[in-house]
């Protein structure tokens, strides 16, 4: 039983980073494809499209920071907390990255047709980023309460 608890602790430790990375992969791929498509159809603003398409990469960075914050000796006492915080924060980062990628793809598509709405079209992606930041910050706060 103790081995299982410790294994779950390790899963939580790595989970925040791994799940964040999966989300960033999917999100950047979706937005990146939209950016490539937009570049095919336009003659300028390429950097802008690529810039938007990498927005979902922030989640993996948050995941890495959470992983380092959680890093400590994995024992039966610390493992449940590591698992809970790591996995739940990781899931939040994963979904936010995927959805942010979709929002970025829509922003690229819309601003290609109407360049004047470029800034406004990024608002949904920015709001999704805000929720990812919530998950990140509160994971750090909670990590401070786990015994070293």
């Amino acid at each position: 039983m103790n081995e299982l608890v410790i294994a779950l602790g390790w899963a939580g430790l790595c989970g925040a980073m791994a799940l964040g990375a999966i989300g960033s992969i999917i999100g950047c791929a979706i937005a990146g494809q939209a950016a490539i498509g937009a570049m095919v159809d336009t003659d300028s603003g390429y950097g802008r499209y690529i810039g938007i398409s990498v927005m979902p990469s922030s989640q993996v960075i948050y995941g890495i920071v959470i992983m380092f914050t959680l890093q400590r000796e994995v024992t039966v006492d610390t493992a449940p907390a590591l698992f809970g915080i790591g996995i739940l924060a990781g899931l939040a980062l994963l979904f936010s990255a995927v959805r942010q990628g979709q929002a970025c793809a829509s922003a690229i598509h819309a601003s290609k047709t109407k360049p004047e709405i470029f800034g406004l079209s990024l608002a949904p992606a920015a709001i999704v980023e805000g929720f990812a930041v919530f998950a990140f910050v509160f994971a750090l706060v909670l990590a401070g309460g786990i015994p070293a």
Partner: peptide, 17 residues
Amino acid sequence: MTDSHRYAMLLSALPAH
């Protein structure tokens, strides 16, 4: 890749009607 965004590249490469 999610199914709802399978053709993100293709549709972004098409000019709007």
